[in-house]
């Protein structure tokens, strides 16, 4: 078995402790990101997710400044940004887009400040890049319990809110008319979004975390019309992207130029993009088939 799979799994893949941690953490985070991301796409809050992750850049670099783990930086500034977005609280989509952009701009400004301070006061030139691009291989095993706990919290929140959240995402007016607290649901959802973005930022980096959040969810939505199935499928695609990404990144140590591993985050987002493009195929093929059969009938 291992003999004929050896071209796929390079030596040491299953024995590596780094790979174990990467797979465990990656799986959990991919599941949370997919569940929370499904609603981000449904609610048109992909941009908010992206903004929160970029604000997380400020959090991560700020954490370096004060000497705590980046995860706590992501969470604190993420929560602050979510509050700001909610306070600006614009209901129309275009206005919300602007409010998100303003928070994002201010957050990135803060990131610029923190980075310059990190460069000035601490001799950690590599730190910003770790925050920005992350790497599943550098996640320390000691963080696993915290990641698992936060993941469970994020997942539990979305699943508990599932039905009210689904209705208020489909139509806020219908939900309000039934007496559902639409605004409170939105705030609780933002909490879940902050958690998911912080976790994804920690594992694949702040600037790529949006990929894991939005990609699997957007692909799943195109593959099925059923809400629960879309959620499950998004989780499946997210986990697949992480596993394949870890495998390819591990294998890439043996690719030319030998000895240089390609970043795992690159593979994860590339796979997510491939999944998204592939998810459009069934409908495109169906449309072509219909056109052809229509042409055949006409002839």
């Amino acid at each position: 078995m291992s003999g004929f799979l050896s071209p796929v799994f390079e030596p040491g893949f299953f024995a590596s402790a780094q790979v174990h941690v990467a797979l465990e953490v990656g799986t959990v985070v991919a599941l949370v990101a997919a569940a929370v991301g499904s609603f981000a796409v449904l609610r048109g809050q992909s941009f908010a997710g992206e903004a929160l992750s970029d604000v997380g850049t400020a959090g991560g670099s700020g954490a370096f400044l004060v000497g705590v783990g980046p995860l706590w930086g992501f969470l604190v500034l993420g929560a602050a940004a979510a509050c700001a977005m909610e306070l600006i609280g614009v209901q129309r989509p275009r206005g919300r887009d602007l409010a998100t952009g303003i928070v994002l701009g201010a957050g990135l400004g803060l990131a610029a400040l923190f980075f310059s301070l990190v460069a000035e006061y601490r001799d950690t030139t590599g730190a910003p890049v770790t925050v920005l691009f992350g790497s599943l291989f550098t996640v320390s095993a000691s963080l696993t319990p915290a990641i698992a706990a936060l993941s469970v919290a994020g997942l539990a929140l979305v699943l508990a809110l599932y039905r009210p959240l689904l209705l208020s995402s489909a139509s806020a007016e219908l939900a309000a008319a039934r007496g559902l607290p639409v605004r409170l649901i939105g705030v609780l959802y933002l909490v879940a979004l902050v958690l998911a973005v912080a976790l994804a930022s920690l594992t694949i980096g702040t600037i790529l975390s949006t990929g894991l959040l939005v990609g699997p969810a957007a692909s799943a939505m195109r593959l099925t019309a059923r809400p629960v199935r879309a959620l499950l499928m998004a989780g499946l695609l997210g986990v697949a992207a992480v596993w394949l990404g870890v495998l390819l990144a591990y294998d890439s140590f043996y690719w030319p130029p030998v000895g240089h591993g390609w970043p795992v985050s690159f593979f994860v987002v590339a796979l997510v993009m491939v999944f998204y493009l592939a998810s459009g195929l069934p409908r495109a093929l169906g449309a072509r088939k219909r056109r052809r059969s229509a042409a055949g009938e006409a002839a």
């Binding site: 796409v41 992909s46 980096g205 990929g211 690159f266």
Partner: peptide, 30 residues
């Protein structure tokens, strides 16, 4: 053919992922 915000996010992260890849090959990247 898709949600504009979702495809924008995907295009962005794909480009950034490539950027991360390119950076990983250079030495004085920070």
């Amino acid at each position: 053919r898709g949600r504009r915000d979702a495809v924008t996010a995907l295009a962005l992260v794909t480009m950034l992922g490539l950027g991360g890849l390119f950076l990983s090959f250079t030495t004085q990247y920070a």
